[in-house]
């Protein structure tokens, strides 16, 4: 039995220790915001935070997460997250949307550490998040918009 906190709630799961957090969230706990895209850290669709840091949940083994604090998109409340999510909606970033929960989690993590990202910063931070629909232009615009909302002096020039 492994105990962890997911979106502020204590949860217990009885699975083998090498099961990835992604599948624990999706199939054992019914939390489906994190998506399965590749299973090998190549797409970012499964991104969650563990103890505040963005992580590919398909790579995080549940056995190492005893007592961890996990946040999925369903439980995120940080200021950068809210700004990013709002910008995503306003700029209508999603097409199919399947990658977007992961994109938003990753972008929120970027703004938490880099409040004034350049296009190069955005490219570096977001390169692990694949979007097969090709929404990258809007992702860039939305991240700049969120950054501006958080710090009005943010420049969108890179």
């Amino acid at each position: 039995m492994i105990q962890l906190t997911v979106n502020g709630k204590e949860r217990q799961v009885d699975v083998v220790p090498d099961m990835p957090l992604l599948w624990v969230l999706r199939d054992e706990l019914g939390i489906t915001g994190p998506k399965y895209g590749c299973g090998i850290a190549q797409c970012g669709a499964c991104t969650v935070t563990i103890d505040g840091l963005p992580v590919r949940s398909c790579q995080a083994r549940i056995g190492l997460l005893e007592g961890a604090q996990v946040q999925t998109i369903e439980g995120m409340t940080t200021k950068p997250f809210r700004a990013v999510q709002q910008a995503w909606i306003e700029h209508q970033v999603p097409q199919c949307g399947y990658c977007q929960t992961g994109q938003i989690m990753q972008a929120a993590a970027l703004l938490a550490t880099t409040p004034n990202p350049t296009d190069d910063d955005i490219n570096a931070a977001m390169a692990g998040n694949l979007c097969r629909c090709g929404t990258y232009a809007r992702i860039r615009t939305a991240i700049h918009a969120a950054a501006t909302q958080l710090s009005p002096t943010h420049s969108t020039e890179s």
Partner: peptide
């Protein structure tokens, strides 16, 4: 127009086929 499914796709609440239980 604000596309109808955009918000649900940004909150994680939109249910894809793979999310059904």
């Amino acid at each position: 127009m604000q596309r109808l499914d955009v918000e649900a796709k940004c909150t994680g609440s939109l249910q894809f086929g793979i999310d059904l239980v």
